[in-house]
Design a protein around this nucleic acid. Structure first.
Lengths: 198, 198
DNA sequence: TACATATTAGTACCAGGTTCTAAATTTTGA
DNA sequence: TCAAAATTTAGAACCTGGTACTAATATGTA
């Protein structure tokens, strides 16, 4: 078997089982352990322990950053009860591996998070939404959402927010959200239960 | 410092930094490395490498189950172009840690996934949706979504699907979805681009 | 004081490597 | 066809972050 092909196989084996030792690789590829190690060197694949360490650190980072993740997208501009802008880049974890197209609920989540953030209230909850996926969004595209508060019914009650999401000049998503604003006391009662807290 | 207190501290240190070595622990706790190791023994804390391995395996399991996760919820019944039922249990990772209430986009995703799955077509894409969060959903609740196909415009074009999500007898979410059904050729053209692939 | 508990020290050993030198084998180019 | 180059294999020394075990030395405490 040529060197290139072996290295491709090695890459594949490690990809679908990163917990494999060099010793196990020698058995699968029928070459010496030194060859395995030279191959790993050339391919820039770290040793088993380093791979596990990186995975552990990665997952630890994710766990740590989860609370931050409660709002999808970075809010870069916010004028309470008026408008807001958030940026969200479509990464690997947001797309279908099959075709690299963004999962709808991430696009929805960015808009939803922004619609709620823009409302100046102790508690804001999405009550309903009317949304449209104008075109599909691909891996790596940077989504810029702009929210505009259209109406406010007093200090409590319904607020209406329109959100438009763009990739460059192109609009890719639009949504009309009805958001309840309330103070904590109302929280366990009728009205504010009809909602989705953010 | 008494032994018990030291062991409590050791537990704490490792909890908020699982990547600490025994050597680093000796510096922080001012005892010999043997004492650290005896303490770890008594507390049942594995060595650094074992801790990292466990974290890596845990996160890998999660990554592995991601493709399955492309459809949110388990589809338990499906009559193509007619109706479908899916079950989705709200777990830790689906709620806001702050208050244990399900994030809206998971609830949306279950309904969306089902609405698309119920359509008998090579490619089905959500074009738009009109949704309502009837009441908030809490950690541990089991969401049962029922989808009904309301109209079908020929073998291609729009289909309308209504989805109702229940927790027990209570309706918690409802949505009206417009889904495009198409074959691959149309995929890169006008109509089918206005959508969100599932 | 004697006994128990806790702590420290030290040695041998392990997995799963890296790093380095060197030999053997295979491939390739002229 | 034959030598140079590339590839593969072998082996020894060393590394980290430990475990396992024995033994000596505090430190209480009854």
């Amino acid at each position: 078997m040529p060197k290139k092909k072996r290295q491709q196989q090695l890459l594949q084996i490690i990809e679908d089982n990163p917990f494999v030792t060099d010793r196990e690789l020698t058995r699968q590829l029928k070459v010496s352990i030194q060859t395995i190690r030279l191959d790993r060197m050339e391919l820039g694949i770290p040793e088993l322990r380093e791979r596990m360490k990186q995975m552990a650190e990665h997952s630890y980072d994710q766990v740590r950053s989860l609370p931050v993740d409660e709002v999808i997208g970075d809010i870069v501009d916010l004028q309470l009860d008026k408008s807001g802008i958030s940026i969200f880049e479509i990464r690997e974890e947001h797309v279908f591996s099959r075709n690299g197209i963004a999962r709808g609920h991430y696009v929805f989540a960015q808009a939803n998070s922004l619609a709620v953030a823009v409302i100046d209230a102790e508690i804001a909850l999405t009550a309903s939404a009317d949304i449209r996926f104008v075109r599909m969004i691909r891996l790596g595209e940077k989504c810029i959402s702009k929210a505009y508060v259209r109406s406010l019914a007093g200090r409590r009650g319904k607020a209406e927010v329109d959100v438009f999401t763009y990739v460059g000049e192109e609009m890719v998503f639009q949504g009309h959200f009805v958001v309840y604003r309330s103070v904590s006391e109302e929280y366990s009662e009728g009205v504010s239960r009809s909602a989705d807290r953010h």
